Computed example of a mutant assay.
Amino acid sequence: MTVREFRNRDLPELLGLLKTQDERASQRSMTPEGRSIEDLALELGELSPYTELVPLVLEQHGQLAAYVALCNYDGEAFLEGPLMRPELGAADVAPLLERAVSEAKVRGYSFVEAFVDEENVRAQDALAASAFEPFRTTYIYEFRRGSDLTPLSPSRFRFEQGEVDVGVYRDLYRETSDNWATRLAWRDEDLRERFSDPQVSLTLVYQDDRPVGHLELERLPDEGYAEVAYFGVLPAARGQKLGRELLLRGLHEAFAAPDVELVLARAHDDERAASVTLESVGFLLSHGVVAYTLELK
């Protein structure tokens, strides 16, 4: 077997692996989104969504046997894949992962992450054999248009949308979960740009004029779905079914857009209360994604 850089002639075989993955949860991992040769060529080339992309393949008997790509997005390194043919095991793809890790070290990354479906045992075994360690499982939930959606009812809380006070938002974001950190590094102008997007809405909820919770909804009408990016309630305000009210309002808002057929939400494995709240309003568990990390320094 030979490890080498991806070439355009690999596109048809990569597309075949991707279509096989789509049919079987046991083979899913984070991979390119394109599902045509033309879209894949653009995604792996001039229209890559990443700051840097290093796609690699494992070749066996002149055919593409496995794929991994080292990706850089806003300075963070992670892998697409490993995506491999059904007959391959952890030992077979070890050289491919070793090459990806080597590329990450050369670029000076402190760590590299990978994301695979909870049912993709072969990819998990391959990552573990290359010293990657699991650190979190994220559960993806779905609510489809036409499902039983509870009507909104009068509330003793006040819900507001409009111009965002980034200081208030940042405090809520920090205090509603110990696991969230990404947005804390955003500048004020980054947050204002995010919430000025007409497809993004932020709902703040008040109790006695004090902000106690928030829900961020992003609509992707061209893709036919919306996503609850974040929702949370301050610890002191929990136990009043406020999270449930926020989610119901988010669902009603999402489905007010005629092109939205599906709403997605997520909860980490240590956020059992969030999972219970999602299920209480009718979200159904779709799948779990296991995150792996490898420290390089």
Rank of each mutant, 00 (worst) to 15 (best):
G75Q: 03
A256V: 02
V93H: 03
P55I: 01
E295G: 11
S286V: 13
R238M: 06
A25Y: 13
R156P: 03
P211N: 10
G89Y: 10
R174S: 15
L70V: 13
A254W: 09
D117H: 15
E245S: 13
E295P: 09
Y50C: 00
L247K: 01
T182C: 00
R272A: 15
Y109D: 00
E175W: 04
R174I: 02
S177E: 08
A69T: 11
V212S: 12
A131T: 11
A69W: 13
A94C: 00
L64C: 08
L234N: 07
L42P: 02
V200T: 07
D39I: 00
D269G: 05
V276R: 07
R194H: 02
P235F: 08
F195R: 03
D92A: 14
L53H: 05
R7A: 01
Q199F: 08
N179M: 12
T20L: 13
V68S: 08
F255Q: 10
Q21D: 09
I140G: 04
D270C: 05
N120F: 15
D197I: 05
S147K: 12
D171I: 02
E227T: 13
V200R: 03
L83M: 11
L88M: 01
R158S: 09
E5F: 08
L172V: 12
K241G: 11
S130L: 09
P32E: 04
A274H: 05
E261H: 15
S155W: 11
E103F: 03
K105N: 01
A185N: 06
Q60T: 07
L15T: 01
A69S: 15
W186L: 11
R244F: 02
E261M: 12
E118W: 09
D165S: 07
E163P: 01
D259M: 10
Y292C: 01
S286N: 06
E133T: 14
A66S: 14
L251E: 11
Q199G: 11
G250N: 10
H61D: 15
A226Q: 12
T293L: 07
T31G: 00
T137S: 14
L152E: 10
Y109W: 14
P95T: 07
L11V: 07
L262D: 03
G45Y: 02
M84N: 04
E98H: 12
L79D: 05
E87A: 10
L15G: 02
L53I: 02
V57H: 04
